[in-house]
């Protein structure tokens, strides 16, 4: 299967993992290993001076694993740019998942702030992967602004509802000039397979794995689903049957006889 290139880096796995919501660093690490992923998100939190918790980073720092710092928590472009600079310093990478959701209930991305932040961050040298609405025009604008990929949502974060936005994802994929990573809402391996069959370049999955009964086993299932979906896409899926029977009324082409 073909390789995926984002921000100058080649990925053989088209499954990316979010690291939130796991019960423990150990469970997170097991899921990462089982998934075969080559890129995981990392977040930032303020340290506690009184109690030094287990360092999460040691569990994700291994050869070949690309860190994707996430600006989640910021509410506008200005905060996102500041958070990006902190994350570049902390993690030593220009890769950035830009996530701006001022609404704490549904966590839907703010399109205006996301576009503004992308423009600014690209100028500052970041490899920007914006999490965004499944809005084809927005995705074109993000790509024009220099985003390294676009990450439209399938459904709101954490809902596991699958590809509610599939009609729009199809348009985005059709028109894309940068890789398309479906991010948010993927709740089952079948959803991921569907996204890949549609032609998405990758999937980012978090909740569905982290809160599964057995996260590592679920991660392994997702690995297979993404591979199967991509392989099917590259093998060129046959067209589905549709009704081609001519209607019984006067022929439209009679005038040509």
């Amino acid at each position: 299967m073909s390789d995926l290139i984002i921000g100058g880096r080649t990925f053989r796995s088209r499954l990316f993992l979010g690291t939130g919501k796991f019960r423990s660093n150990r469970e997170m690490a097991a899921a990462i290993a089982a998934s075969g992923t080559e890129m995981v998100t990392v977040a930032m939190k303020r340290i506690e001076t009184t109690n030094a918790s287990d360092d999460m980073l040691v569990h994700v720092q291994r050869d070949g694993l690309q860190l994707l710092p996430n600006t989640s928590g910021v509410r506008d472009a200005e905060e996102a740019v500041f958070a990006a600079q902190l994350s570049r310093e902390a993690f030593g990478t220009n890769f950035l998942k830009l996530e701006i959701h001022p609404d704490p209930r549904y966590l839907l991305p703010d399109s205006t702030e996301t576009l503004r932040a992308t423009e600014e961050l690209v100028k500052l040298g970041f490899v920007v992967l914006p999490y965004c609405a499944a809005d084809p025009t927005l995705c074109k604008r993000l790509a024009e602004a220099g985003a390294a990929a676009v990450m439209p949502l399938g459904a709101p974060i954490g809902t596991n509802l699958g590809l509610r936005t599939r009609d729009f994802l199809q348009i985005i994929i059709e028109q894309a000039t940068v890789p398309v990573v479906v991010d948010a809402g993927i709740g089952a391996p079948s959803h991921a397979a569907e996204a890949m069959e549609m032609g998405a370049d990758a999937c980012l999955v978090n909740t569905a794995i982290a809160v599964a009964g057995q996260p590592a086993a679920m991660a392994a299932a997702f690995k297979q689903a993404v591979e199967a979906g991509r392989q099917a896409f590259e093998a060129v899926l046959p067209v589905q049957a549709a009704n081609l029977r001519a209607e019984a009324s006067s022929p439209l082409t009679a005038f040509l006889d």
């Binding site: 979010g18 939130g20 977040a43 303020r46 340290i47 902190l86």
Partner: peptide
């Protein structure tokens, strides 16, 4: 001062 460190998330 603001000091941040890596955390699970994203």
């Amino acid at each position: 001062l603001t000091i941040i460190k890596a955390a699970r998330g994203g």
